[in-house]
Simulated assay, not measured.
Amino acid sequence: MTKIRSLFSKKKKYATIPSEQAKQEVPEGLMTKCPSCKTIMYTKELRKIKMVCNGCGFHHKITAIERLEMTLDEGSFREYDKDMIATDPLNFPSYKEKSELDRKKTKMNEAIVTGEGTINGFPTIIGVMDSRFRMASMGSVVGEKITRAIEQAIEQDKPFILFCASGGARMQEGVFSLMQMAKTSAALNQLHEEGQLFISVMTHPTTGGVSASFASIGDINLAEPGALIGFAGRRIIEQTIRQKLPDDFQTAEFLLDHGQLDKVVSRHDMKATLTTILELHQPQTK
């Protein structure tokens, strides 16, 4: 009798698999798993620490609006060119439909938000790219909004800060997209000639035509930890030069070591770092 009781009182060796109904009861987006260290956190708690993993420091992607809220003083932001929407100059198949889906998903009209605001009281013109919209690819509207923001910086005699995140030029717009590389670079050259500050902040990922144009020509170039930054992909480069590239190739840390960045800055320290730079570049009063 004792043996029978002990047989039924043993703990189960294996956990049961939750039913499909039980799985469905867990709200989508409640938890976030770090792709680097696999730490699982409540998304709500992760947002409180600026979407930076407290296990390994991995920087999760954030939206343009979240970036603006983290960077600018509360209530100081005034947006530019909000209603500007791209056309379909090449009649590219499904481009209009996919762009409309992105507009609904992101509640944005394009892959970048531009405007003006203050950072700890220092006025600035700012642009923030959002990779949820066509992978923040650089189309005609993205280039135009950046150029107009630069022109505002010149007109108002304010510094320009651009948070870059992009897969490169937008293939659906062909040469119209590639022309934005020259247009934005020319506008930044004019900003430079006026003696005004341009801070480029590269986030994950900053690639293709964006990395080869405005993203890389800041007076001060910053990046978030672990950000992928580069023009062509690793495989293409390895096939071209017939050499094996380092494991950390095209990371922010690799670029810093090779003199292509001024500093790698954690998201926790970004606002303070930008404040220091802006303070140092304030015009001297007599």
Rank of each mutant, 00 (worst) to 15 (best):
G209T: 09
F214A: 06
M179G: 03
E194G: 10
L191G: 05
L222C: 13
Q172N: 15
G218V: 05
L178Q: 13
E224Y: 11
A186T: 12
S185T: 14
P205R: 06
R170F: 10
R170G: 06
I229F: 02
A187T: 10
S166G: 13
S185P: 09
L222I: 10
S216A: 15
T203E: 09
V210A: 06
M181D: 08
K183C: 03
G174H: 08
Q180E: 10
A187Q: 05
E194F: 12
Q180I: 02
I220V: 15
K183H: 15
P225E: 06
E193P: 02
F176H: 13
H204V: 06
C164M: 02
A223T: 10
M179D: 07
G226Q: 08
K183D: 05
H192G: 07
G209W: 01
L197A: 02
I217Y: 00
C164V: 08
H192V: 02
L178T: 14
A186S: 15
L222P: 07
T207H: 06
L222D: 06
F176N: 11
M171L: 14
I199P: 07
Q196K: 15
V210Q: 03
Q172Y: 13
E193R: 15
Q172S: 15
M179S: 09
A169P: 04
A169K: 09
S211T: 07
S185A: 15
K183P: 03
F176P: 04
L178E: 05
M181F: 02
H204F: 03
A212F: 00
V210S: 09
E224I: 12
P205Y: 04
L188P: 13
L191E: 03
G167D: 13
L188F: 03
G209F: 01
N189A: 01
Q180C: 04
G226W: 06
A165C: 14
L191H: 08
G174K: 12
H192I: 01
P205K: 03
I229E: 01
T184Q: 02
A182W: 01
R170L: 14
V210P: 03
S177R: 13
A169F: 03
T206K: 11
E193Y: 10
E194L: 07
I217H: 00
M181N: 13
G226Y: 07
G195L: 02
C164N: 13
A187S: 12
Q172R: 15
G168L: 02
Q180W: 00
S216F: 08
F176A: 07
A215E: 02
I199N: 06
L191Y: 09
H192N: 12
Q172P: 12
A187N: 08
A215P: 14
S216N: 14
I199C: 07
K183W: 00
S185Y: 00
G209Q: 08
H204M: 04
L222H: 10
